[in-house]
Design a protein around this nucleic acid. Sequence first.
DNA 1: ACTAAACTATTTTTT
DNA 2: ATAGTTTAGT
Length: 772
Amino acid sequence: MPNTFDSDDTRSLMRTKTLTMNSSSYLDGLNDDQRAAVESLEGPLLVLAGAGTGKTRVLTTRLAHIIHTGNASPSQLLAVTFTNKAARQMIDRVGNLLGHSVDGLWLGTFHSVAVRILRMHAEIVGLKSNFTILDTDDQTRLLKQLLQARNVDEKRWPARNLCTMIQRWKDRGLTPKQVENIDFGDFANGEAYLIFREYQERLRVLNAVDFGDLLTHCITLFQNETDILSNFHKRFRYILVDEYQDTNIAQYLWLRLLAGTGQQNICCVGDDDQSIYGWRGAEVGNILRFEKDFPGAEIIRLEQNYRSSGNILAAASGLIEKNVGRLGKTLWTDDDLGHPVVVTGNWDGEEEARAIGIAIEEKFHAGSSLNEFAILVRASFQTRAFEERFLSIGLPYRVIGGPRFYERQEIRDAIAYIRVLIQPDDDLAFERILNVPKRGLGDASQQIIHQLARSSQISLHQASRIIIGTDELKSAARNSLSQFLENFERWRSELDEKPHWEILEVIMDESGYTSMWQADKSPQAPGRLENIKELISAIEDFESFSAFIEHVSLVMDRENGREGGVQNRFSRGQATKQNDMVNIMTLHSAKGLEFDTVFLPGWEEGLFPHQLALDEKGSEGLEEERRLAYVGLTRARKEAQILFAANRRVYNQWISAIPSRFIDDLPVDNIITNSLIKNHPKLYEKTSYSHYTQDSITLVSKDSRNDLNVLWEEEKPVKNRNSGSRFKTNDRVVHRKFGVGRVSKVDGEKLDIIFDRVGIKKVVDRFVEPEK
DNA sequence: ACTAAACTATTTTTT
DNA sequence: ATAGTTTAGT
């Protein structure tokens, strides 16, 4: 991984590299605030660390400082992060600072620390310590069964929705009983809380927990067993929390219980302006409330930014100031003003991709490394336009994020085989693979097994064993089931003889799973076989199957992501390194990273701020979107470019859009809006991005789009965005490009129009005229 | 029981 | 557009 991926502030990172362990020289080079945050050890402390102010450095130095000064031994330190990546990084950096690796630290994600605690005391919450951890897929399948059992209309109330509902409840630390008294809408005829209760009962029977349970069970444990809790109090002298603004209520309760009242010292680091996970239960309120929650708390603000040049920082600060209800920070930098932020409009999404491609190629040929470019998008579908464009011009890129390796169907199947192997009573896994590959055990057979299992309160596996001794199944099905069970017996007996990865290979072969994909002629089948191979080799790194299972359920690491582009075309010249690629990712996954040049495409109303965010959370949602914009801008060191398109294809439909209101939020002094783009939209003509100076942009190439220019010239002055449309349903209208049509729906100034020639389109009011 | 065709929902972000 | 799911046909 290139340097940029190690996040945070590269410049301060480089300073730390020269340090040695001999003295407390790790303190050198910290500014006053940073140093105070490291050395203020007693009592609750909130470090408000703005973007690029050296947050991670403070956290890791603080850990190193506590250990180095002997204030506490590593095992008395608890440090929690949100991502495994952050946790790994922190361990590494602490080791670097101290000059030796550190053992015994309780450092990990909220969930991995919770598992560790829960495995120690599982019986208290009614579990066995070898409980399994379910993922969303398992949860949804389970919920689906429960919904079916209640004859709930799954079209109307899908299991997926209930799954998120339950997750959100657990984020808030709610039990089924508490949910009874809150308003959850009419889901499942108002019976959602009953299903929630049944679901929890099922989990207990299955000796399983979901992600949310890891925290809520811990909370129950702490609340009911004061002895155990006070042991943890004695153990953890110092608690450190990263990204505090992203904690949900359950995590907050968990922390408060662990932090106790007296002797411990809790230090939370975060930035309310970078809270972007409200949609999955995070509560900015936690960080805003810190002083009340922890009386006598000290608050240290880190405001010197070491990352971005002046204009970028000012633009970002001006933007975020439009939010109300923030703790408030004033970021500043010693750096020059640098480039202003460039805001440019394009005709459509494809042109946007083309423009960014051109800009990157030019800078690349001028000597920039591709790793130093990032394209940060709001929604993952936006990456496609860039991938297509970059593939066609042979510009190497990588997409960070995307589907996770362990969530792929074939990987989950293989894991289900492992789960049944080591834990035959794991019903969810058993069910998943019983007829995968097809072995003649369809609905009817499964029904019979299920029935017996339910009526006798035994697992599917046990029920199957009984059933093969009866004639309840037709002989073909019975033989097949018996073969299936025998196979597992045999594989299990080989566990001691062969290394586990070989057993997995044997299972995949002998179960027919491999041949199933070999026989499959769909284009993705070879890839799936590849993935299975990759899994087999990945598993070699683990001591045992169970160690591996624990890893996959907790460390939901992503694969490296897609890579594309033609290497050769760019291979000449000394600037090209093997892994030199443009980075494409969502704004969310960009948090914590930084790049020289950042492109922020798709700044259009509806996409960014995203319509769903506004619909679901109103002004709160808008503010979170704005924070996301802030996060995006502050990723840039030297250059940031914001782009918007007048038209975009979304689910195979063309949508016309207006520029994001966030563009209006940017202070005019720090940006180039290409002069009059918004008032004279004919400047939507293609512009070149690379020939500007600080004061002006030179328009270089023009597209032959005269017809479009006419369209723009006729535009009415932009009205207040929230005002409604001039049109009402059934009005006849004319569109420059789409012809005549009839309005079928009016939503603010957005219209659905059924055009006579081209069918239904979404169009903004001012693009159409009344039919004469 | 399996397969193919038809239909449908789904596209914000993820520990 | 695509993937996933349901349905009807073999």
